[in-house]
Amino acid sequence: MPHVVVEISHPPFGHEHTFAGLYVATACLSKGMDVIVVLRGDGVYTGMRGQVDPQKNISLPATEAQIEDILELDGTVVADAGALVMRGIESDELIEGIQVRESSDIHALILKEGEKIIAF
């Protein structure tokens, strides 16, 4: 089974990239693949916790629940430290279980683990 990296570069909801990418990550995990979700650039907004029923409020899937599912299925979720700082997001504002890493570590992780790299 290939190791898969799913890169999320968009915030949730404004475009479909985020939830579409997270669906792919979940489906890969359900088939037994190892998956790392990388939140980079505006994608780090996807790591923020505390969403209030997006389905009810704006008729879109709850990406926070998707991230929690991915973590529950033993997927890894990492967020770019520099992108978080730039956006004023503290680590205690993130969904529990997300790992904060420096860009250089994330590049190394992608090169080491990304047998298949899917950018959203």
């Binding site: 290939p2 792919v24 489906a27 298949k116």
Partner: peptide, 11 residues
């Protein structure tokens, strides 16, 4: 969507 997951796995 599993059509894509098979591609990820097999390509």
């Amino acid at each position: 969507l599993y059509g894509f997951i098979d591609i990820i796995k097999d390509a």
